[in-house]
Design a protein around this nucleic acid. Sequence first.
DNA 1: TGAGTTGTTCTTTTT
DNA 2: GAACAACTCA
Length: 660
Amino acid sequence: MDLSKLNTAQRASVTAGDGAHRVIAGAGTGKTRTLVHRVAWLIEQGVPPESVVLLTFTRRAAREMLQRASRQVGARAHGVRGGTFHGFAHRTLRRHAEQVGRTPQFTVLDQSDAEELVGMARTALGLGGRGRRRFPRSKALLNMFGRATNLGMSLDEAVVSFNPRFERDIADIVRVRTAYETRKASQDALDFDDLLIYLGRLLAKHPPARKEISGRCRHVLVDEYQDVNRLQARIACLLSVVHGNLMVVGDEAQSIYAFRGASVDHILDFATLFPTAPTTVLTHNYRSTTPVLELANGVLDSMHSSIDKELVSCVGDGPMPRLIKVEDDERQADHVVCRVLALREEGVGLDEQAVLARSGHQLVSLELALARANIPYRKYGGLRITEAAHVKDVLALLRAAINPADVLAWMRILPFCENVGRTTAQRIAEARAKGDRSPLSAMTRRKAPELDQLETLLSELSTLIKDAQQAFLAAVEGIRPWLDRRYDDAADRALELESLLSLVDRYSDVPALISELALDPPQRAEAVQTEDDELLTLSTVHSAKGLEWRAVYVLGLADGAFPSGFSIDDPEAMEEERRLLYVAVTRAKRHLDMMQPRFVSRRSGPVFAPSCSLLDDIPGLWDRVVSGAGASAEDDEEADEGIAADVEDRLARFADYFGD
DNA sequence: TGAGTTGTTCTTTTT
DNA sequence: GAACAACTCA
């Protein structure tokens, strides 16, 4: 194996001996490369690949790393167990299901399943109703439960510290959670948080299970350690408790998941847990030019926390980052489209360019503009295919076929049939969950002949569970007549379902399909086949973590957009916004355009955004960026027209309001 | 009891 | 723009 291309610090991490080890790796300093070589080196030293566990933030990251490691040491690298904490927990719990009160066939609830189940528990307890004072919605409730578990605090504490306005409702909130737990147990399901909780509990409280599970983890490597929460940090430690080999890699300046309980404390306090553990710091940046890093360092300087490291470029000089003021979303989109095409002319391919935004919906106007300009793109952090209603329908069919206790699935598919509504669906679902196998059509009061069709379809599906592709095909065929009635764009949806078939063949059987899709739902864009191999990337900043492009555009640098309106009054949240900006700008290798609109779009319409506090707080901003030419003269004319249109618009509203 | 309509509220980032 | 509750009518 060739270690000569690594620098001293990287090599030290790669060839570190046994024990605990921490690597602090600034953006672009070859963190992934180091991990990849570490894995390869371990294998070359004779460590059995299946005793190495590589925990990453996304499954994509794990796949990529193992691919690269296999270039070093061959196919053996694929024997390494890798994936997300949730994926690892899922696989482990399948083997220990009985110990956590489930069967090995348990279902994994994704976010929306969990929300629905909380909603059912909530209404069943009579906590809906609007006559009474406001009670949190199911989404908010699930959020509270998640906060509590991921931070390792009680639900009471979590409500008091994060949702004090619901303090008076704590008793009821606790009741909902108890009911939710009961429902999950009775339908043999675990939600995302449960996967971590139960694995944590198993490791902490069942010594034989711990011995078995951790015994198989000779080396544990954790990527993006700055984004683990308390529960995940605990799991990482417990997994390595038998052999004592734990390597964590991260960058405290890139911690961007506080909203789900992540805390930099875990990487910062590593030395408290492992006093003798060495720390390696990677500081040489191989990704970006000096001007890009000057700006990144400026963002670091604007942070209040004491992150004390400057990135030094090993790439050299390049063009200055540009700050471009535009009028609004549309002008912003137009500018990006022009610039993307211009750079492409200069030889920067579409696949070397990316547009990043704070939230997914900020990309919408750009998508329209790209479509008009015929620029092919791929969007990350947008809709997942499993969020599409018709996909959920098909999956619900399959779920009901493999697990009759899956009340959520029944509640989704039963009302397809004419004369079956919520009430009937609920009655049937609960009866089935209790083991009642009488024919569906015998369980209603009204006549619902379509229930017989449904029953036939389900029994057909249950004979196909060993073959994910066949079963999916049959489910799509079976659901087609109902699609027409449910959706006015049924034809498009049917087409999309057919195109998903190619995606399904990577899963072995139906249970695998269901749980893998819940844990790692493909982006909707990924599912659609395109002939273009050169695609522009659109992404949220969160989903761009760990990636890099030659040219990067950061959208919506204005208070209310980036930073998010939710963060502006909260110093802690603003600190996270700064880290997000840091992540965004450090994705760029060479070209960086930051867009600052004067108006940001809200539901209620455009809102004037006088400034961007994130930029204002960067010391010496104007030494670090140049003011970009917003647009050509002819574009300015259009901008004037845009403003004139605004004035007209306002005048019309005034006239409306004052009753001219 | 199902089906369809209207009004209110909240609106981010992901496994 | 979606989720949810409350309403109406058959």
